[in-house]
Design a protein around this nucleic acid. Sequence first.
DNA 1: TTCCCGATTTACT
DNA 2: GTAAATCGGGAAA
Length: 202
Amino acid sequence: MILPLEFYQRDTKKVARELLGKILVHKLPNGKRLAGRIVETEAYLGVIDLAAHSYGGLRTERTSTMFMAGGHIYVYLIYGLHSCLNVVTQKMGVPEAVLIRAVEPTEGVDEMKKRRPKARKEIDLTSGPGKLCAAFGISRKHNALLLTDGEVFIEDAPPLKRSQIVASARIGVEYAEHAAEWPLRFSERANPYVSKPQPSDG
DNA sequence: TTCCCGATTTACT
DNA sequence: GTAAATCGGGAAA
């Protein structure tokens, strides 16, 4: 079952935690499915979050996607090189989102390997936000698509036990002063597909 | 128009 | 461990 929009139009931290274990799918034009189990996410709390693109309510062409209703996807280019996939949360006008940082491949591994020629080991295919976008063939072309339109979507799966979820500080946001320490990174305990650095307990 | 720098990955010392 | 790659967004001018 594809997760309904209501799943996303809720508290962002809750969505970030509950996305762990769910199945991210990209259905290619030829019908082939690329899929993976989400094992790492980060919450971005919009207006109050110095690490978020939408901090302070900043609304530009790029960030306008974050202001859309929960259930849209927000894809942006980072460092001029890599795409990052987020799912927008909350109601329209509240610019919050969850960054999908890592998945564990479940379908279409051979196809992912073709798209990630530099990955030497299977563990490197999707263990990072830029890596998984490359493996799944997701780019800014997909920005602002809806997760219920059947191209890029997320399927339901049993939730993780609370003891299997680790909360830690987010990656790459050291510049964000006090917000940098907020425990908004969520990952599955001891899953090898979680990106580096591995989270310390929190 | 110019300038600075980033929600990263990879190669190399 | 450190640094290069690479370019568009956002702010300043």
